[in-house]
Lab assay of single mutants.
Amino acid sequence: DETGKFLVLSLYDYQEKSPREVTMKKGDILTLLNSTNKDWWKVEVNGRQGFVPAAYVKFL
């Protein structure tokens, strides 16, 4: 199980638009929880879990 094993870097600021999403700032290091959807990845940032656009992050 690779859940929570990968870190990704936020390339852009992102403001959550729904309760299922999370806000991140450019340069944030996020824990990747799920990347099965090619468009939206589930991450943990600042103690919160939610989705961010996959195009806004990259693997470290």
Rank of each mutant, 00 (worst) to 15 (best):
D1H: 14
D1N: 14
D1K: 13
D1E: 13
D1T: 14
E2A: 14
E2R: 14
E2I: 14
E2S: 14
E2K: 15
T3I: 13
T3R: 13
T3P: 13
T3W: 13
T3G: 14
T3D: 13
G4Y: 12
G4L: 13
G4V: 14
G4I: 13
G4D: 11
G4R: 14
K5A: 11
K5D: 09
K5L: 12
K5Y: 13
K5S: 11
F6T: 13
F6P: 12
F6L: 14
F6C: 15
F6K: 13
F6S: 11
F6D: 10
F6N: 11
L7Q: 10
L7Y: 14
L7F: 14
L7S: 07
L7N: 06
L7I: 09
L7P: 03
L7G: 03
V8D: 00
V8W: 08
V8T: 03
V8H: 03
V8E: 00
V8Y: 09
V8M: 09
V8Q: 01
L9Y: 11
L9S: 05
L9Q: 12
L9D: 01
L9G: 03
L9A: 05
L9E: 13
L9W: 05
S10K: 04
S10H: 04
S10V: 15
S10M: 06
S10L: 08
L11Y: 05
L11M: 10
L11F: 05
L11Q: 06
Y12K: 12
Y12Q: 14
Y12A: 13
D13R: 01
Y14M: 02
Y14D: 02
Y14C: 07
Y14I: 02
Q15Y: 14
Q15E: 15
Q15N: 14
Q15S: 12
Q15F: 14
E16K: 14
E16Y: 04
E16V: 05
E16P: 15
E16F: 06
K17V: 09
K17S: 11
K17I: 07
S18Y: 06
S18A: 08
P19E: 12
P19F: 10
P19C: 10
P19N: 10
P19M: 09
P19Q: 09
R20F: 15
R20Y: 14
R20V: 11
R20E: 12
R20M: 13
R20W: 15
E21V: 05
E21F: 06
E21T: 09
E21W: 05
E21P: 03
V22S: 01
V22A: 05
V22K: 01
V22P: 00
V22Y: 02
T23Q: 04
T23E: 03
T23G: 09
T23H: 04
T23S: 15
M24I: 15
M24G: 00
K25F: 09
K25Q: 10
K25T: 09
K25H: 11
K25M: 09
K26T: 07
K26L: 06
K26R: 11
K26M: 08
K26C: 08
G27I: 01
G27Q: 02
G27R: 02
G27P: 00
G27K: 02
G27M: 02
G27Y: 04
D28Y: 04
D28H: 05
D28V: 05
D28F: 05
I29A: 03
I29G: 01
I29R: 05
I29Q: 05
I29V: 12
I29L: 09
I29Y: 06
I29E: 03
L30Y: 08
L30E: 00
L30M: 15
L30D: 01
T31N: 08
T31V: 15
T31C: 12
T31W: 12
T31Y: 12
T31R: 13
T31L: 15
L32H: 01
L32G: 02
L32D: 00
L32V: 12
L32K: 01
L32N: 00
L33Q: 02
L33R: 02
L33Y: 03
N34T: 07
N34K: 06
N34F: 06
S35K: 11
S35A: 14
S35H: 11
T36D: 15
T36G: 10
T36I: 09
T36V: 10
N37V: 04
N37Y: 08
K38M: 09
K38C: 11
K38V: 09
K38A: 12
D39N: 12
D39G: 09
D39L: 13
D39R: 11
D39W: 14
D39M: 12
W40T: 01
W40V: 01
W40F: 07
W40R: 01
W40N: 01
W41H: 02
W41N: 00
W41F: 09
W41M: 04
W41Y: 10
W41C: 04
W41P: 01
K42A: 08
V43M: 01
V43N: 00
V43P: 00
V43C: 02
V43L: 02
V43G: 00
E44T: 06
E44D: 09
E44I: 07
E44G: 05
E44H: 04
E44L: 08
E44A: 08
E44F: 05
E44N: 05
V45Y: 09
V45I: 15
V45A: 10
V45C: 08
N46W: 05
N46T: 04
N46Y: 07
N46G: 11
N46H: 11
N46K: 09
G47C: 06
G47D: 07
G47P: 00
R48C: 06
R48I: 09
R48P: 02
Q49N: 06
Q49E: 11
Q49L: 07
G50F: 04
G50N: 01
G50H: 01
G50Q: 01
G50S: 01
G50A: 02
G50E: 01
F51I: 06
F51P: 00
F51Y: 15
F51K: 02
F51A: 01
V52M: 03
V52Y: 01
V52W: 01
V52Q: 00
V52F: 02
P53I: 05
P53L: 04
A54F: 02
A54L: 02
A54E: 02
A54T: 05
A55H: 13
A55I: 12
A55Q: 12
A55T: 11
A55C: 14
Y56G: 08
Y56R: 05
V57Q: 00
V57F: 04
V57C: 09
K58Q: 15
K58F: 09
K58C: 15
F59K: 11
F59E: 09
F59A: 11
F59W: 09
L60N: 04
L60H: 08
L60S: 05
L60I: 14
L60R: 03
